[in-house]
Amino acid sequence: MSIARWTRRTLLQRTAFAGVALAAALAVGPQPVAAQTLDKASVGVLALSSSGPIFIAKAKGYFEREGLDVTLSTFTSAQQVPVAVASGDVDFGVTGLTAGFYNLAAKGAITMIAAQSRDEPGFPLSAYVATNAAHAAGLAKPSDLKGKRIAITTVGSTFHYMIGILGQKYGFTVKDVTMVPLQDVPKMVAAFKGGQVDAILAPSTVARQLVADGAGQILGWAGDETPWQLGALFTGPKTIQTRRPVVEKFVRAYKTALAEYHAAFNVKDASGALVKGPGYDALLTIIADATKQKPEIVAAGLPYVDPNARLLIDDVVNQVRFWQSEGQVDKALDPKSILDLSFIGQ
């Protein structure tokens, strides 16, 4: 195992190099005072705007301010991040919560320590999209999805759970729909356009593109229907045991960035409309650079984060129960056992 781990490490170092280069390009904040006094830490992210607070903390030097030299490792799928944390290749990770994530947590490999983004009313992240044919046949609102064929990425994915909670809200179970797992979004789109399914759950950009192409109708947004905890910040239990100060510093810097992100992107006025908060453009640029996306695109899909990094604990418990009832996560797992919220004081 150590040999396998070693080669993987060298591989990961390449990714880390990319992260360093990225960070250098983003360095607009104060320069570190004395590099040799900094504790080293690494964090695994996806190049998505849901990792925005990490990009901000890095670019604005909040980690250095806490005395941390943080390396970003960019991964291409949500699956890889918890695996990298479990193997010790990176110290921290932020990604969406899937059945695979909970299975790793159930084996004692990772612990959730703070929230990432969540689905929240008024923040359009994932849409229920109906094909024109299904729409014409009466599929008009999310509750109509009962009994329909819905394309998802994979069994155990966030989309799978979103159908599960939608059912919990409207009184049906996932058994009442036909979920068609197609592995990735391009195949989902192909099945959708080919009329092979009645609906898909799609990220906002994809959903809007489908509507623009005249291929379907948006029925609603998961954030409006079923707010839930999309992602979390997590680390290995051993890191908490042996390097607690590093974790504390990391979470403090993360929270600073989180609060800034929230103030800039998540605040609404009295009428309920989103308003641009302080530093909106600068932060948008940071995220756009880190995700290699156009700022307009990033702005259209910025998720909601809790300014204090608080987790929707009830939802996390519900997620675990759901996966357990689906037989995809070990029944013995106690959801509380994979949380350590002492760092955010929740």
Partner: peptide, 21 residues
């Protein structure tokens, strides 16, 4: 079996991978 297969040894392996089993 990446294409919406409910059963199949490939679908099974894919699912186990996704679920980290």
């Amino acid at each position: 079996e990446m294409i919406g297969a409910e059963y199949g040894i490939g679908a099974f392996v894919l699912m186990a991978g996704n679920l980290m089993q």
